[in-house]
């Protein structure tokens, strides 16, 4: 899974009010190149929680994402390249996502996060 998906996932255990952003633990990361598309990046930019994205990028070792952003930066090719790489090219293959409120771990196996809840969590 990529940081795009991380930015779209929240813990929804019953009673949890702050289930976002999920912490990231990783034992295996992969980088897979993909074609950069500026239209997609501009489309998704306002939908992202940038603070969560910035922290997630740092937790997978990508340290060149600015913590403060302005829409005008989307005209800068260098920024778009970094943005694209962190959002769509770094894959969390093995590890876990951690609920910030309860500490509940959601395992990530072969690149797939398992968000299923136990009966007592629904």
């Amino acid at each position: 899974m990529r940081l795009l998906t991380h930015n779209m996932l929240a813990c929804n255990i019953k009673g949890v009010t702050k289930g976002f952003p999920l912490g990231i633990e990783h034992t295996r990361l992969e980088t897979k190149e993909s074609e950069l598309n500026a239209d997609f990046l501009r489309h998704i930019f306002p939908k992202l929680d940038w603070k969560a994205f910035h922290e997630a990028a740092q937790s997978v070792g990508v340290n060149n994402i600015p913590d403060q952003v302005e829409p005008v930066m989307l005209d800068d090719d260098e920024f778009l390249r970094k943005f694209h790489h962190a959002l769509l090219e770094v894959h969390l293959e093995e590890g876990a996502l951690i609920c910030p409120e309860t500490g509940r771990r959601f395992p990530v196996t072969k690149g797939v996060p398992n968000m299923l809840l136990n009966e007592d969590e629904v």
Partner: peptide, 21 residues
């Protein structure tokens, strides 16, 4: 192709952040 797959019940865990998108 690259796409992300999530194990969940319908869209649980995605519904808040994907809302309206």
């Amino acid at each position: 192709l690259q796409a992300d797959v999530v194990v969940t019940d319908l869209v649980h865990g995605l519904e808040k952040r994907l809302a309206g998108s």
